[in-house]
Amino acid sequence: MSELYHVSASPHVRSKVSTDKIMLCVVISLLPATVFGIYNFGVSALILTLLSIASCVLSEFLYTKLMHQKTTVKDYSAVVTGLLLALNLPATVSWWIPVLGGVFAILVCKMVFGGLGRNIMNPALGARCFLLISFTGQMTSFSSEKYAAIDAYSGATPLAYIKNGGTEYDLMSMFTGRTLGTIGETSAIALLIGAAFLLAMGVISIQIPAAYLLNFVLFLILFSGHGLDLPYLAAEVCGGGLLLGAFFMATDYVTSPITPRGRLVFGIILGLLTGIFRIYGGSAEGVSYAIIFTNLLVPLIERFTIPAAFGKSSEKKKKKGDA
């Protein structure tokens, strides 16, 4: 054995978890929803998903090449962005919409801020909102030959149907996902399977989705005018992009707080905003805007929720006593 002491700079203990492993976990967890989306909406959903992923990966690759930076494509984050973007699109949009969205997500929402870890909002949602504002017609028209026979749902998502005062919603089909919506949002059960996988792997923590969903439900009970109407609440939770947003997009590492208390605050603000947008807003959906807006508040939330360092809390009390 060597007599020498090995001296090195910290950190001395390294986790085996790396960005690409986490991103791969997210991709795996999104597969049930993706597969169901493709089953539900047909080949066009598959093509849109592939286009979106290809567009994101290619934009990131070309950007890093052109800017003479180290290429970051291998960390799968662009794949996750592309997949999430595709899951947020209706299956009927033109082929160039996911391509344009992918370019926007990577270039404008991510790379110009300095790449992964420095983006101020979730790239996939930023791109979705960009597309939603630019091509409102295509982005909000849902149709599928499968469901044309069901009168109540033709051309309207369950959420829009409820917003317009409809009361005869089929909770079972909303839970399994045999209904209209964007590619990845329809099936609550597929999303929950993926979310359970992420929670079990320790990739995401329960604080943000729990605070988000609970506060959203609380808001609906208090302000929706329906009161404690369980079928209505279940329909609001399962319908639209709420589950997709709460488990897969609000929990994005880069754009959510790292402090435990901050995560609760983050989730509560999300629930509040989503409730306000859904009930008082013009559109039936409000998850995307709620998440990207709250993303912008994250630095502020973190600043106010920094946990006291070990041994510091007594000093604080002393100071208060002195004052």
Binding site: S94, L100, V108, F130, I133, S134, F135
Partner: peptide, 15 residues
Amino acid sequence: YTPIAIFIMAPGAFF
């Protein structure tokens, strides 16, 4: 060509 409507709205000015 489908116009990208966001460019004649406020965010487009910033971009």
